[in-house]
Amino acid sequence: MKILHLETSSKNCSVAISNGNELLCLCEERTGDYKQSENLHTFVEWALEGAEITLKDLDAVCLGMGPGSYTGLRIGAASAKGFCFGLGIPLVAVNSLVSMAEPFLGNGYDAIIPIIDARRMEVYTAVFDPNNGEMITKTEAKILDENSFDEHTGQRVLFVGDGCTKAQEVLKLPNAEFRSDVYPSAQYLIKKGVEKFKNKEIEDVAYFEPFYLKDFQGVRQRKKEIF
C-alpha cells in the first residue's frame, strides 16, 4: 500500500511516501514565504526517487486538507486531484492539525492544542487527546484573549504551531508549554491517512475542496465541521 502524502497548508512544503505505516521518504522545506507552487512537484519527484518507486506504483494520495494558507491549500488540492485523475487512484484527506499533534502523543500531557496563526489575534485550533490522538473539540477559528482555553487551567498543556507567539502573550495558563517551531508535516499524515484508506473513507475527487474554515475575499464556502 504505497501512498503519496502532500502537506501544503503552511510555510512548510512537505511531501512523503509511505508503504503502509512505514515512511519510505520525506522531502520538505520551511521557508519565510509560501513557495509551494515552485517546490511541490520537485519535492514529489525527489520523494519518489528516494523511495525507489514511480508514480505508477502509487495506490492513493493523502492530502493535508487544512485549515491553513488559502493559496497553499489550493495548490496542494489541485496537485492531489491531478495525480488522482491521471493515475486513477483514490484521494483521502486528513485535517492538517492532526499532523501537528501526532509527534507529541504519549508524552504525559493532559491536552495537545495546535494553533495556526490567522489574522490579528485569531488562530485555527482544536484540542487533541494526548494518548490516542483523537480530536476532542471541533476545528474552529478562535479569537485569543486571556480567558481562552481556561478550561485547561492547572493542566499540563502543550500548544504547538506558529500561533504560539501571540498565544504566549495573552494566555493565563501557568502549566502550559509552547512550541512555535511546529508546522504541519506530511510524515505525520501517514497513520491517519492509512487508516482512512483502509476504511474506504475516500473523497470525491471531482467535488473535493480543502478545509478553508473561513471565507476568502467574499467567496462563500459551505461550512464544515471536521473531526
Rank of each mutant, 00 (worst) to 15 (best):
A80M: 11
A60C: 03
G76F: 09
T71K: 08
A51H: 13
S69R: 06
G66K: 12
L73I: 09
R74H: 07
Y70G: 02
G82R: 05
P67H: 06
I75H: 05
M65K: 15
L58N: 08
R74D: 00
P67T: 07
A60L: 04
G64D: 08
A80G: 11
T54N: 13
G82A: 09
S79Q: 07
C62D: 02
G72P: 10
E52Q: 15
L55W: 12
T54G: 14
F83L: 00
G64I: 02
S69P: 04
G64C: 09
T54E: 14
M65D: 06
G72E: 07
F83Q: 00
G68V: 08
G72N: 06
K81G: 11
A78K: 12
V61C: 06
G72A: 05
Y70R: 14
D57P: 10
L58K: 07
S79M: 11
A77N: 03
L73S: 03
F85I: 06
G64N: 13
A78Y: 06
G72H: 13
Y70P: 06
G82L: 09
D57R: 12
G68A: 08
C62Y: 02
C84I: 01
A77M: 01
G64S: 13
T71I: 10
F83T: 00
R74G: 02
G76C: 07
R74W: 10
E52A: 07
G82K: 09
Y70M: 03
P67V: 11
Y70S: 02
